[in-house]
């Protein structure tokens, strides 16, 4: 899922300092699961903003709503009635949700309350880590199911580099060396010979370097 984190309340407040009434929109998708922008977090954000503004003698009126998904036009459409009389929309979704709201309500000031961090999963409750580099051309079958694109701090494909020591990356003793993990796994699987194969450079045009990407399934499109 997409992992996001809330921006400091002060930063969000600064984005809407001229507004009297705002709509805060949570998202029941990924950001609910990673506890950044679900129904509860949206209400806590609204309450925090109201307290701040009231202290400044400039009360803020808030309306909150949590969309099933902000990355789907049909759920965004449902906000239609709520946006009429607000001065701004605060989105507690990932960057996708913010853009969907901005596109749909193009006469409204739409601001992000979250920083979209990465694609990952949880380790224990309250802890998430990055796992996928979104390169658009998966090579996990060649690297023992461990992604060097994002888990190696240099995205090395023929690793490990000379900075790997005691299983850790040169950037921090808290970061596992992805290539040590790959080596260990391939070793356990008896496939170390695979690591001797030269891995050619990636085709980055399949990643962000090819411009905004699209995916199409014509068979499911409705005319």
């Amino acid at each position: 899922m997409i992992i996001a984190q809330q921006k400091p309340v002060k930063d969000v407040a600064a984005m809407i300092s001229n507004c009297k009434k705002v709509l805060l929109v949570g998202c029941a998708g990924c950001v609910t699961v990673c506890l950044a922008g679900g129904e509860k977090e949206t209400e806590v954000m609204a309450s925090s903003l109201r307290i701040m503004r009231k202290m400044e003698d400039n009360p803020l009126e808030t309306v909150t709503y949590t969309a099933t998904r902000q990355c789907d036009p049909e759920y965004v459409d449902m906000l239609g009635n709520m946006v009429q009389d607000v001065d701004a929309i605060v989105s507690l979704a990932c960057g996708v949700g913010v853009q969907y709201l901005a596109e749909r309500f193009n006469d409204k000031w739409v601001v992000p309350a979250l920083d979209t961090k990465f694609i990952g999963g949880s380790t224990v409750h309250g802890n998430w880590e990055e796992k996928c580099g979104l390169c658009g051309d998966c090579i996990l079958h060649r690297t023992g199911g461990i992604c060097p694109i994002i888990r190696c701090s240099k995205s090395i494909l023929n690793g490990p580099c000379g900075g790997s020591q005691y299983g850790k990356c040169e950037i921090s003793k808290d970061v596992d060396c992805a290539w040590q993990l790959i080596y260990d796994r391939m070793s356990a699987l008896g496939k170390l010979d695979k690591l001797m194969e030269f891995q050619p450079p990636k085709d980055w045009s399949k990643s962000r370097d090819g411009g905004p990407r699209k995916a199409v399934r014509e068979d499911v499109m409705i005319d």
């Binding site: 002060k10 925090s48 701040m52």
Partner: peptide, 8 residues
């Protein structure tokens, strides 16, 4: 923490 952050 939130209350500190917002100056309350």
């Amino acid at each position: 923490k939130i209350l500190d952050e917002i100056g309350f």
